[in-house]
């Protein structure tokens, strides 16, 4: 399953089980690593679990770092860690920004520099939006209640 050729070059191994839209994930993850200047190699595997995929990659990688991409999850693993304890795991399909950050951090694990934390701006924005929405609806409900409630 793992390639015999090419794997003896030091690089991060990206193990992926092909699914709908996986090429996009691969592109962002690779871009993240390229920006950090760490080479990577993509391998297809039969496994579906991202943690197991990442661990396979980590064991086979000369740099000891593997990145697993499943349909519903994403994972970074390190060869010195126990198989069931990945370094980073994402249990949702994720967004393109999140995929990029997994690329950054897999590379940073190799480089030995602090991990990049995704700015919470987007998330906060969403939360603020939902808060604003909540306030708006709350206000409307209150208004309706006021107007209809007290009538005898």
């Amino acid at each position: 399953m793992l390639p015999e050729k090419g794997s003896n070059k030091p690089c991060v191994l990206i193990c992926v089980s092909p699914h709908f839209g996986w090429e996009k994930k691969i592109r962002e993850v690779q871009a993240g690593m390229e920006e950090e200047g760490i080479p990577c190699l993509v391998v297809q595997a039969e496994e579906f679990d991202a943690v197991a995929l990442a661990y396979q990659g980590a064991i086979a990688s000369k740099l000891g770092v593997g990145l697993g991409i499943g349909a519903e999850s994403l994972c970074i693993h390190y060869h010195k860690l126990p198989a069931e304890h990945p370094l980073f795991a994402l249990n949702v399909p994720g967004t393109s920004a999140q995929w990029r950050y997994f690329g950054y951090n897999a590379a940073r694990l190799v480089k030995g520099i602090p991990f990049k934390v995704q700015p919470t701006e987007e998330l906060v924005q969403q939360q603020m939006d939902s808060k604003a929405l909540y306030d708006l609806i709350y206000g409307i409900v209150q208004k309706v209640l006021r107007e209809t409630g007290p009538r005898p």
Binding site: L81, F88, L109, I113, F115
Partner: peptide, 8 residues
């Protein structure tokens, strides 16, 4: 292993 927050 140490938590990723403290890495490096």
């Amino acid at each position: 292993h140490l938590p990723p927050e403290v890495f490096s």
